[in-house]
Amino acid sequence: MKAGIVVFPGINRERDMAIALELASGHKPRMIWHKETDIAGLDLIVIPGGFSYGDYLRCGAMAAQSPVMAAVRAHAARGGHVLGVCNGFQILTETGLLPGALLRNAGLRFLSMDCHLRVERADTDYTRHYQAGQVFRAPLAHGDGNYFADDDTLDRLEGEGLVIFRYATPEGAITREANLNGSARNIAGIAAPNLRVLGLMPHPEDLVDPLMGGTDGKPLFDGLVAALAA
């Protein structure tokens, strides 16, 4: 699997992501500066977390206009894999690669804590090493993670099975208490119709080694490597 990580000014989780990708694939991912436009030959493009452009105007709004994102859009249109985590998810919605938007957390507080995610389907390249219904722990750290879309869009996402992760209790119940940031229908992660573009707010890359306190996130990367090993 050849992976690249897009780096914008203000991004700060690209190294965590690189560790997770290298651990799973055995290869160092390519770091792609936001002014680059040639990303040919890569299987997976990751937009990592952080605070691109200081979250000016809206989270992800500036990054969505940068030169590299035209190349990422073309990569997605070719059927390439794109993973956006946290700010990366915000950037994918601002770019229009995923529907909806991420609003300020309903409680207005910046949240930095662990959450539990329920895997809604295991037949994607991102979730094939999990079981459907399985719950795993993932750290989250964001001020704007409250997923919003109009009811028609939410119904379509659910109807087409494009909700991939939901905030849940450790037992897998979808409750209001488990929905830390107030997201519509507890949505933590969604995919594009081809299931190759995925965005989620929590950080599976930060639980991939026992030294980090757990390996709950590692199956996501192992599954990707298995799917994209050519």
């Binding site: 105007l57 809206r58 709004a61 206009q65 919605t93 601002e94 529907p99 909806g100 938007a101 609003l103 919003f148 879309a149 109009d150």
Partner: peptide, 8 residues
């Protein structure tokens, strides 16, 4: 195109 996100 930029100043507003018309989704929200």
């Amino acid at each position: 195109k930029l100043l507003a996100n018309t989704v929200i």
